[in-house]
Design a binder for these strands. Sequence first.
DNA 1: TGTACCGTTCTGTTTTTTGCAACGCTCGTC
DNA 2: GACGAGCGTTGCAAAAAACAGAACGGTACA
Lengths: 305, 305
Amino acid sequence: MSLQYLRVFAYIDEVARSGSIRKAAEKLFISASALDRRVQDLEAELGTPLFERHARGMRLTAAGELFLHHVRAQRADFERIHGEIEHLKGMRRGTVAIAASQALAFSVLPELIDRFRRANPGITFKVLICDRQAVVTALRAFEADLGLVYSVQPASDLAVVMEVEQRLCAVMAAGHPLAARDAVRMRDCLQYPLAMPDPNLGARALLEAFFARSSLKPNVVLESNSFEMLRNFVRTNDAVSFQIQVGTPLQYNQDGVTARVIEERAFPRQPLTVAQLKGRHLPQPAVRFLAALREEMQSRGTVVT
Amino acid sequence: MSLQYLRVFAYIDEVARSGSIRKAAEKLFISASALDRRVQDLEAELGTPLFERHARGMRLTAAGELFLHHVRAQRADFERIHGEIEHLKGMRRGTVAIAASQALAFSVLPELIDRFRRANPGITFKVLICDRQAVVTALRAFEADLGLVYSVQPASDLAVVMEVEQRLCAVMAAGHPLAARDAVRMRDCLQYPLAMPDPNLGARALLEAFFARSSLKPNVVLESNSFEMLRNFVRTNDAVSFQIQVGTPLQYNQDGVTARVIEERAFPRQPLTVAQLKGRHLPQPAVRFLAALREEMQSRGTVVT
DNA sequence: TGTACCGTTCTGTTTTTTGCAACGCTCGTC
DNA sequence: GACGAGCGTTGCAAAAAACAGAACGGTACA
C-alpha cells in the first residue's frame, strides 16, 4: 500500500536511492521526463534544490537529506497508521521488519519468529541479514523497525531498547577433543587451527582485542564473513571457530557441530543490542515482537537494558 | 506554505474541523463535490470510511481519528522540516506556537517573548491564551508546540518537559493593609472580601483543596474566569484575590495592584508545567525558546524537571 | 574523439481534478 | 404532515495536472 497522494514522496525516495532520474523512473514505471518534472516542481515549491546535478546522476543536497528523512519517516508512519486501521477492522495483520547480524539467523530469530507467528497469525516478517553497518543504514532508511546487532557503534540517532550480555563461544566438531570438556579456555583453542570470522563480523572485534593484549599467537587457517561457512568448515576437521553465544547450538549438537562457552576471566565483553531509530513510533506488531524478544532473552541470559 | 502534494491531507483536516463537507469546501475555496470525491477516494484507498455520514454533517470514525492524527502530525512535521531547510538557506525564520493559561499572559510571556525576539529576530510567535483543557486540545491538534499550564491533568499522550514550583499569591490594591506586611497568611486574607478565580482556572483547585480541610469560611464577592477582571476589581476596594506566583507583579506595583506570597505551612502546591505532545519533534525555534524559558524560570524560582 | 549516459525541454496525449446543476436524504418547523 | 433548509452525493463537461516519447545539450570515460 502506498497511497496515491504520497506518490511524489515515493518518487523522491526512489531518486535518492537510485541516484539517477532515469534509473528511478524505470523502477517506478514512469518516464524519466515525467519524474524529472515532479522533482523540479517539488524543488520549486520548497524553494531549494534537493539534488545536485552531476553528469553521473543526482546527489542529495543538505536540504535534500533533511527532506528525504522526513519523506521516509512519513511513509513509514503512514504504514503504521494503516496497520492500526486494519487492526481496527479486526484484521490482525501487519509486518515487522528486522535487520539483524548473521549470528541471529541461525537459530534465535527463526525459532522466535515461528513461535511468535503461531501466537499472532497474520503478522508477517521481513528479515534482512547483513553486517552491522547495513543494520544501521536500514534503520535510518526506515527499512527496518528493529535492528539486532552485536557491537554496534553508538550513534546519536539510534535508541538502544535492549541489551543482552553475550559471551564468546568456541565452535567445533561434535567429536572434537575440546567438546568433551565442560569449560574451555582461550589457550586451549589456540592449540588448534582457527577459522576466524572476518573483520566486519562483530565477534572479530572481541577476538582482536583479546589477542592484542595476549602473547598467544593464533594459527588462522580460514577467515570468512559467513558464520555458516565457518561452522561447516570446522565440522570435518579439528579447527576451532568462534561465535557469540546467542548464535550457537550450545545444548544440542546440530549437524555434527557443537559449541562451548569460553571461560576467560578478563575477556572483553560486548552486549548484543536491539536498537531502533530514535524518536520513532514503532508499529504495533513490532512493539509486541519486541516484548516477546525480551521475554525470550530474559529466559536465556542476562538482559542489561 | 502547505505543499501542493499534501493537498488532500489539508482537505481531510478541514473536513474534520468543520464537521461538514460544504463548510470545509467553502474554507478551502473548492466545490463541495470536488472535496467529496477526494474524501471518498481516500477512504477507498484505505479501505475504510473515515467519516460517519449524518444528516447534519460528518463525524470522524475511529479509523478517521487515527488517520486525522497522522495527517496533523505529518503536516506539523513538514512545517518543521521546511523551517529547517529555510534555516539552511541562512534565513533565520520560524514560528513558535504556544498555548498558555491566562496567568502567563500578564507579564511572563510578553516579556520573555520580547527578549527572545531581540536575540532571535525573524522568529515569530503564535500565542493562544485559553483554559487548560483547550491547551491540551491545541497540543493534540498540532496547533501549539508548547503548552504552559497550571495544574494540568496528566495524559498519556503528553510529555512534561518542565515543571516550575509555584506558590499561591494574594493579590490586592497597593494601598491595602495587607500590602504593608511582608508575610501574609490565608486567615489574614479571609478578613477581607474575596475575588475568586472561577473553577476552570488552575488556582481555584488549590483554593478549594485548602478550604475543604479548613474551618475558615471565605466571603466570596466576585468570581470570574479572567485574572485581568479580578485584578482590576481589587484595585479600587479592599477585596483580595489570588493568583499563582508567576502571573503576579511581586516586586513592582503595577497599575496600583500588588501581590504577596501566601505563607502557609501545609498549603497544597501544584507546579506550573510546560508540556508538549509526546513523541513529537519540536521545531528548532521552539526548542530554543524552551531553553530560554527554562533559563528564565531557573532564575525566578524552583524548576523541578 | 567518439560514445554512453545523464538531466532536461518540447510536443501532444492521457489521466486526474474540478465546478455546476441536480438528486435523494434527514432533520426541525410551521 | 407538508415544507424548507441543510446535508452528502452523483453525472457531465471543462480545466488542470501528470504523463510518454523524441530530441537536445552536457559531462565522463575509454
